[in-house]
Design a protein around this nucleic acid. Structure first.
Length: 407
RNA sequence: GGGGAGAUUCCAGAGUGGCCAAAUGGGACGGACUGUAACUCCGUUAGCGUAAGCUUUCGAAGGUUCGAAUCCUUCUCUCCCCA
């Protein structure tokens, strides 16, 4: 492989290089010193659900890993234990040590879908942050000015709109930066929203007479609802552990405008392949067709080609094909629902059994709004009786819930 | 440390003694249309009840009142101004 080739691969999709020639510089350094680079990625072990947004960064790390570089995953257990109230005035309850442990393990399991975790180094930042005394802490703090901290967009916005900022939040970027100092990171990766924090690491390293890390930021993947950022709290994620047909369905539901982003960032088509699909799109191909290919590709990455095939067929049959008879219903037995008197079963009660998590009031509304069908027929009276004793009964609630009741 | 403003349902934001489960907008959900896209239109948006109705909710706890999101007291939190 010639020297230029990895560089092209590594640069693909990266949105920000700090400094501009960061990557070339670090790769050159590695070659000159005949060593592998140390590449850092930090995680906050709060909500342990990785999604396609994380995958954008992880895939890039995988490329580095394939070239033999060392990936260091920092689990931010120290910061998580303090509790990060970012953005809200309800401060998040600090996580217990056990919970952090569990979350971290979940993370590592999910990371293994993309990275070779056996070749990753995993460090907990409590290892060094937990033992810093006041003298060291003050020394760390003295390296940064308030004006620098306030440049961070998030702080700036909150400050100017009069939202609260706790002092410990101001310190967060420094703690994260300290991680870079401790592990001698050559490169820190993150989403573009991490630019500030990552560059803080660079500054702190230089303050300690260490070579400053390069910062590579990947674009933020937009959520499936088209909002600015895919995040768990927005409920707009495609989880790496989502079931195949769920993953496929979620991809199909993204707004058309997002398709090029998804094509570039979450698929593993070759650059030529991506270009080709993009061209088809521009030439007026139905975006749905392209979306299917993206969906297929994604499911294939996290599950298998067979799963992807099945997911696509399921989707087509379930949602595109209008024929009621051909749809798939999840089979549920009366016994499993705990229905022992099938004679006087009302529709509302049945729906409640099928969708335990919904309130009866809400289900009643859904029925009245015409979103429930029995054997393909709309039923809008929540009190109407349902005969479930003899024949199987097919119930659909809303767009996605399909059940078949068997006696 | 002193003074002022504020905390409302998922969010923003009305409401200043009964007509308030609380306007309006956003979001979300559902329906029609469709490609589980977008656009548009319509509906719903605390819980329980077949229903009448009942229960919980307006930062927290007490109090006044036949009746409180609204008045009083204390507390918690936030923002602003002055020192």
């Amino acid at each position: 492989m010639n020297a230029a080739e990895p560089l092209t691969v590594l640069k693909e999709n990266v949105e920000i290089f700090l400094p501009d020639n960061a990557l070339e510089e670090k790769l050159g350094l590695a070659q000159k010193e005949n060593r592998k680079l140390i590449i850092k990625l930090g995680f906050d072990p709060t909500a342990p659900d990785l999604h396609l947004g994380h995958a954008v960064v992880l895939k890039k790390l995988r490329q580095f890993q394939n070239l033999g570089h060392t990936i260091v995953i920092i689990i931010g257990d120290f910061t998580a234990r303090i509790g990060d109230p970012t953005g809200k005035n309800k401060s998040r309850p600090p996580l217990s040590a056990e919970q952090v442990q569990i979350n971290a393990q979940t993370y590592v399991n999910q990371l293994s879908k993309i990275l070779d975790v056996n070749r990753c180094e995993i460090r907990y930042n409590s290892e060094w942050l937990g033992s810093m005394d006041m003298t060291e802490t003050i020394k760390l703090l003295s390296q940064v000015t308030l004006a620098q901290i306030m440049q961070r967009t998030d702080f700036n916005n909150r400050f100017s709109t009069g939202l609260p900022i706790s002092l410990h939040e101001l310190v967060y970027p420094l703690l994260q930066g300290q991680d870079s100092v401790m592990i001698h990171a050559d490169i820190e990766m993150g989403g573009t929203d991490q630019l500030f924090n990552c560059s803080m690491g660079r500054q702190l390293q230089e303050g300690q007479d260490l070579p400053g890390q390069a910062v590579l930021c990947m674009p933020l993947l937009k959520g499936i609802d088209g909002s600015a950022k895919m995040s768990k709290s927005e409920g707009n994620i495609v989880g790496l552990t989502d079931a195949p047909h769920e993953m496929f369905g979620k991809i199909m539901s993204i707004p058309d405008a997002l398709l090029p982003d998804y094509l570039h960032l979450v698929t593993d088509f070759t650059p030529e392949g991506k270009q080709g699909l993009l061209q088809q799109l521009n030439q007026g191909e139905n975006p749905m067709a392209i979306k299917k290919q993206v969906g297929f590709n994604v499911v294939q990455q996290y599950h298998s080609a067979e799963d992807a095939q099945q997911a696509q067929e399921f989707f087509q049959n379930q949602f595109q094909n209008k024929k009621f008879e051909e749809k798939e219903f999840t089979s549920v037995s009366l016994a499993a629902l705990g229905i022992d008197q099938p004679e006087n079963l009302r529709l509302l009660d049945l729906c409640k059994e099928l969708k335990i998590e919904e309130s009866r009031s809400n289900l009643k509304r859904l029925i009245e709004a015409g979103s429930v069908t029995i054997n393909g027929t709309k039923v809008t009276d929540s009190q109407s009786p349902v005969e479930v004793g003899k024949e199987p009964v097919k119930v659909r609630i809303g767009k996605r819930a399909f059940f078949e009741l068997v006696p």
